[in-house]
């Protein structure tokens, strides 16, 4: 298993990798979550007036969600590309640079999937809740 030279895959050099890439999608989820929470809290407390209408917040949720889904999609796509474009089998457990490369892509893709679901969960609130009460 040591026969493969460590840099057989383009962009599999250690200096080209970043551990931070795997955290991008969850961080986008967190930003989306906080944006939704803060917008709703501030609107209902300070601006909704007597009507208690949630309409602008629901629009804001929609905009945030589109943005978040796009960012998570891009991050997930980059992750998926790393899996697809790395030659060899789809394993990521061997002592090779391409396995490490594929592994980081794999985890990025999985976390993007989870972040997507969690983001849509939060966005769904805007579909069901119509007023501040």
């Amino acid at each position: 298993m040591d026969a493969t030279p460590p840099n057989a895959v383009p962009n599999a050099k250690e200096s080209d990798e970043s551990l931070l890439a795997i955290f991008v999608s969850p961080a986008v989820w967190a930003a989306h979550f906080m944006a939704c929470y803060i917008t709703a809290a501030v609107w209902c407390e300070k601006f909704s007036g007597d009507s208690l209408s949630l309409a602008p917040v629901r629009v804001a949720f929609g905009v945030y969600t589109l943005l978040a889904v796009a960012l998570i999609g891009v991050n997930g796509w980059f992750g998926y590309r790393r899996i697809r474009r790395t030659p060899g089998d789809h394993a990521y457990g061997a002592d090779r640079a391409e396995d490490r490369h594929r592994f980081l892509g794999y985890v990025t893709t999985l976390l993007a999937g989870l972040s997507l679901v969690a983001t849509l969960f939060v966005a769904a609130v805007a579909l069901f809740v119509e007023t501040c009460h």
Binding site: C36, E45, V57, F121, V129
Partner: peptide, 12 residues
Amino acid sequence: LPAVTLGVFSAA
């Protein structure tokens, strides 16, 4: 807290 806040945290 407003229902929408509860919803957001319930979803998570």
